[in-house]
Design a protein around this nucleic acid. Structure first.
Length: 209
DNA sequence: CGACCGATCGTCT
DNA sequence: GACGATCGGTCGA
């Protein structure tokens, strides 16, 4: 599509995963499976800051077959199954062997809404279609089999920049959701979202500032 | 509104 | 054998 630049290695391969997460707000996540395209604007993200972050799957350098992709070079998908039923989509950032990742938690649907409805079994478009990480992965057709896929070329999964920029004043910051197990790190301000957007998950009290 | 609960299974201990 | 970077439904105030 004209006017859309794919985010490249220079974008993903940077040291500050929290900054990258914030910069992902307003970008466009695109999937193209079986010749069918779906896309949506990113409105909510969370940063997972490597081996020192108790909320991260890579905390303390844990390295398993599931998390191996987090240790690969920047710009790959990390999709994992949670609660036996939901697939959560992350983007790997920073250099090889530094396991940073960003969880995409909210999308404002753009293209392919009928297909998203079909994938999710929903009857009509409402804010639940792509609100929350499990819902958006399902709507976009993303699952664990996509772990390791590169986002750096215009392939089946990528993130584009169409020039849209959220107002700085519209960006909210809060602790991450669902990471109470992370002790002191549960309170870190690593979640970013577009204030007032209906596709942002979480409770209203978290979404004010 | 908020609190709680069940679903469901791969991953890790 | 326990638990989760969740979701949608239910129940009670």
């Amino acid at each position: 599509m004209a006017g859309v630049n794919i985010l490249d290695n220079l974008f993903y391969d940077r040291a500050d995963v929290v900054l990258i997460a914030r910069e992902l707000l307003g970008k466009v996540l695109v999937t193209r499976f079986g010749g069918q395209r779906t896309s949506g604007r990113i409105v909510e993200v969370e940063a997972y800051n490597g081996v020192g972050d108790r909320a991260s799957h890579a905390y303390s350098g844990r390295r398993t077959s599931r998390t191996e992709v987090m240790y690969m070079e920047a710009g790959r998908a990390y999709v994992y199954l949670i609660y036996g039923m939901h697939h959560l989509f992350n983007v790997v950032t920073n250099k090889k062997d530094i396991p940073h990742a960003i969880l995409v938690r909210g999308l404002e649907p753009m293209e392919g809404i009928p297909l998203m409805l079909e994938r999710t079994g929903k009857k009509k478009l409402d804010h639940t279609l792509t609100r929350g990480p499990g819902n958006l992965a399902k709507a976009m057709g993303l699952a664990t089999l996509h772990t390791g896929v590169s986002l750096l070329k215009k392939g089946s999964i990528f993130i584009g920049d169409d020039g849209y920029r959220p107002l700085e004043t519209s960006i909210g910051v809060s602790p991450r959701i669902g990471v109470d197990y992370a002790g002191p790190d549960a309170g870190l301000p690593y979640r970013f979202f577009i204030r007032g957007n209906p596709y942002v998950s979480g409770k209203a009290a978290l979404n004010g500032g």
